[in-house]
Design a protein around this nucleic acid. Structure first.
Length: 492
RNA sequence: GGCGACGUGCCCAAGUGGUUAAGGGAAGGGACUGCAAAUCCCUCAUCCGCCGGUUCGAAUCCGGCCGUCGCCUCCA
């Protein structure tokens, strides 16, 4: 494969630049995952979908990808926003809420939401990360990292915990642009509880608290780690001192990623990460989504309303990650229609005997795939990639009877596009599953009987009866198609 | 207050200096059908929020204005 350039916007340099890996053709990528104290909404998944597309695009040009995405199952605090840690614990708060009554303890709660999260992850056809580490399973590494920072003079202990000294790290603020230390201090001062901090902007690496619901023993007594240290530690453990790409939601730019850079670079003396990507927040029906507002769609909710997971996926990636994207049910319905056209392609492929994928050079579909890939390599232009995909579908469906080389080319195209965008594949699975699990509804034999009866009615010009049968079948989720070859039916 | 994004047809949306302004949805017309559904074909922005400027040439660059939104403050 010819050497390809993968261009991506980089938050650090504020430009779109080629993604260059330390090790040729091997991308080491860390994406910050969720804190599992509640249900994830589709906005969360815009971020993970973007990461997934990065992984797929890299794979499409022949790169190997080491992809790490964590789960934060430690409570942390609701006011980590100002880099320091103070205030109520998210997990504790969730446990104390009405929804939390069903859980035995915070560990149980974290496991519950984490399981639901991973289910949705799979349903949206997101590739499994190479490693999905959990903060609570890396306590020892975090403690060692904090000790190391104290030894190097970047951190110090006070009666309330251990803090990172932002003044000991000259580059603090280089990612977010928060160079204005004064302004930062004003913000931090509002919630800081420890006057022993050297600089109000110093953030917590370890909090001492022997009353906390999740606590561990450390050189500083019972307590729990600061929010930022887990990602520094897990990224280093699984990907090395210097990683190629680090991503997350736009809100993580500051303080989270800023703090990660400070901790990691102070600890190793090497650049932490060469390329940063941040995903713009999703809006829904013209309004901002948020956990606290409660105006969010979740994957299980939308599935229950009858939308397919692939349609949800497609709707969420239909606008490039860096642009504001207003998710609406209208968009979702449009995508549902597109997914059904993929299914139509699949039926015709099946009718053509499901040939092995093959395509001749210069074939129209080969050109369209190339254009879709090119769009993805250009800062993940999903709008264009999707447009090329739909054009390909049109090319396939334009042929009244799909057969031979054309059928093989159609298989090739759908396979390629599916690897790249992940919006086609589960189709084949789900169709098979549907056929297998359809027994609880009206069975094939009964359908055939109805069709026969309808054909007889049509023959006798009793169209009222024929239509009544058709309506009945539609109500049962069976769609009839009168073709020159006879009557076919599919489940909807 | 600091930082940033966006404003393209009825709707979503690509395009960031130069032939006919991608693609999809909706809508209208047609083929097919007993009628439908599915599928296919055709039509659908001389114009890109407004006003100036730069240029041989701008939706694309610059300035101003108006409007919408986001981050910095639970958030991916």
């Amino acid at each position: 494969m010819a050497e390809r350039t993968f261009r991506l916007y980089d938050t650090l340099s504020r430009t779109v630049k080629p993604l260059v890996t330390v090790e040729p053709d091997h991308l080491r990528f860390y994406c910050c995952g969720p804190t599992v104290y509640s249900y994830a909404h589709i906005g969360n998944f815009r971020t993970f979908l973007t990461s997934d597309l990065i992984v797929r695009t890299a794979q499409a040009i022949g790169w190997r990808v080491s992809y790490v995405s964590n789960i934060t199952d430690v409570g942390h605090l609701t006011q980590d926003d100002v880099a320091d840690a103070a205030g109520d614990d998210k997990m504790a708060k969730a446990l104390a809420s009405k929804e939390g009554e069903q859980f035995a303890n915070v560990w149980d709660l974290a496991r519950h939401y984490s399981d639901i999260f991973e289910d949705a992850w799979r349903q949206l056809n997101l590739q499994a990360p190479t490693v999905r580490p959990r903060a609570t399973e890396h306590m020892r590494e975090q403690i060692i990292a904090v000790e190391d920072l104290i030894r190097k003079g970047n951190a110090y202990e006070t009666p309330t915990g251990v803090y990172f000294s932002v003044d000991s790290f000259a580059d603090y603020g280089k990612l977010s642009g928060n160079r204005d230390r004064e302004n930062l201090q004003v913000a931090v001062r509002d919630v800081v509880q420890d006057d022993n901090k050297r600089n109000p902007a110093d953030f917590a690496l370890w909090k001492k608290d022997d009353k906390h619901l999740m606590q561990w023993f450390s050189p500083w007594g019972w307590g729990f780690p600061g929010w930022h240290i887990e990602c520094s530690v897990m990224a280093q453990k699984y990907l090395g001192d210097t990683i190629d790409l680090h991503g997350g939601g736009e809100d993580l730019k500051f303080p989270h990623h800023e703090c990660e850079i400070a901790q990691s670079e102070a600890g190793t003396g090497k650049p932490f990460c060469n390329h940063w990507i941040h995903v713009t927040f999703l809006q829904a029906e013209g309004e901002k989504m948020s956990k606290s507002k409660g105006n969010f769609y979740t994957v299980p909710d939308l599935l229950e309303q009858g939308y397919s997971a692939l349609a949800i996926r497609m709707a969420l990636i239909s606008v490039p990650y860096a642009k504001p994207h207003n998710f609406t049910l209208q968009t979702l319905r449009d995508c549902q229609g597109h997914i059904e056209r993929f299914q139509e392609c699949d039926r015709r492929i099946a009718a053509a005997g499901s040939p092995e994928p093959a395509i001749s050079e210069g074939h129209e579909l080969a050109g369209l795939y190339e254009e879709a890939l090119e769009a993805m390599l250009n800062d993940l232009n999903t709008s264009v990639a999707l447009a090329k995909t739909l054009e390909g579908v049109k090319v396939i469906l334009r042929q009244t009877t799909l057969a031979g080389d054309e059928a093989a080319a159609a298989v090739w195209f759908l396979d390629k596009v599916n690897h790249l965008l992940g919006i086609v594949r589960p189709l084949y699975v789900s169709l098979a599953e549907e056929a297998a699990s359809g027994s609880d509804e009206i069975d094939g034999k009964a359908i055939d009987a109805w069709i026969e009866e309808r054909q007889a009615a049509k023959k006798g010009k009793d169209f009222a009866k024929a239509d009544a049968i058709r309506d009945k079948l539609i109500a049962a989720g069976v769609e009839l198609r009168d073709t020159p070859q006879g009557v076919e039916w599919i489940r909807r």
